[in-house]
């Protein structure tokens, strides 16, 4: 029986149950947040049940998601749960390489911060974004893109009924309207101003790679499944390359989950705040159980 920890990207809701779970396990999330603040020389606000400072700040939201994931990782491992594989959904890659002991907690935070600062000029224009389309097939959405918004890209397949697109916001809005007309069950713009995993990020591959080379890496102690090409990442060069690919290239979560299943993983733990990964696993068939650890 194999196990995997899977790490979510962003936090989509205020995580009340998660904070309670951390309290019950005597883990103080703010210890992690303070450590990030000190490392990055920024002033992240303390997080509590009524925090709202993180909602509209993409960088803070990423760092908070990282803090939650790392805290949950510590709790699971302290309970003796040892994963055979790891995988990180989008920005969840940073928590997964920390969990694999490939980088320190502080260097994981540095990588997130640097990646964000690198693409910030793109983010600040507020011209770009991402969106989810539920209920249309890849072929349907691909056909709509070719016909109406050829610069948009499907940058992730969550499952056969849930796709993520990225590109210019004006084009996203056109495509979402067309998707609804075509019969999508629902569409939603994501609260980000960066078209992660799209062609607009490609120009940052080299500078991000250069920064990665300044960070101290260890060989991953637990194999990580690449969301870019689904290879099993087991070496330092592979881990470094995956970080660059994860930021700048399309990913495929559906295929990543299938590789875990093919490797006989039957128990997966959503290692972070929210239940987003459990929700999108709904149409990923296989003999496995995905657990949200705080319920």
């Amino acid at each position: 029986m194999k196990k995997a920890f899977i790490f979510p990207a962003f936090i989509s809701e205020i995580p009340h149950k998660e904070l309670k779970f951390l309290d019950q396990n005597n883990v103080d999330l703010n210890t992690y947040i303070h450590k990030i603040s000190t490392t990055l020389n920024i002033n992240l606000p303390n997080y509590s049940y009524d925090s709202n400072e993180y909602g509209n700040n993409e960088l803070y939201a990423q760092l908070l998601a990282y803090a939650f994931s790392c805290a949950f990782n510590e709790i699971l491992t302290s309970k003796g749960i040892k994963p055979d594989f790891l995988a990180g959904y989008s920005m969840g890659i940073y928590a997964s390489i920390y969990s694999a002991k490939s980088v320190s907690f502080e260097d994981g935070a540095r990588l997130i911060y640097h990646a964000f600062k690198l693409v910030e000029d793109l983010t600040q224009t507020k011209q770009y974004g991402m969106a989810a389309i539920i209920g249309l097939s890849i072929n349907d959405v691909h056909g709509l893109i070719i016909k109406y918004t050829p610069d948009l890209e499907i940058i992730n397949v969550n499952n056969e009924h849930s796709l993520v697109i990225a590109g210019k916001k004006s084009e996203i809005q056109v495509l979402l309207k067309m998707a609804i007309d075509e019969g999508a069950i629902t569409t939603a713009e994501l609260t980000v101003n960066t078209p992660y995993h799209s062609k607009y990020l490609l120009k940052y591959a080299e500078p991000f790679s250069n920064f990665i080379d300044s960070i101290s890496f260890n060989k991953p102690k637990i194999p990580i499944i690449s969301t870019f090409d689904q290879r099993i990442i087991a070496t330092i060069p592979e881990a470094k390359a995956e970080l660059v690919h994860n930021l700048t290239r399309k990913i495929n979560w559906n295929n990543t989950m299938h590789i875990l299943i093919e490797n006989n993983v039957i128990e997966m733990y959503e290692c972070g705040a929210g239940k987003d990964l459990k929700k999108i696993s709904r149409f990923i068939c296989g003999d496995y159980q995905l657990k949200s650890i705080y319920t």
Partner: peptide
């Protein structure tokens, strides 16, 4: 969430052997 809605539709499609496309339901649901 909407994926639950889709899964439920799949359950009913199988149980009642329904001839209906998801896109048709999407258009109706809008």
């Amino acid at each position: 969430d909407s994926l639950m809605f889709l899964e439920l539709i799949e359950i009913f499609k199988k149980k009642y052997n329904l001839n209906i496309e998801l896109k048709t339901i999407g258009k109706y649901a809008v």
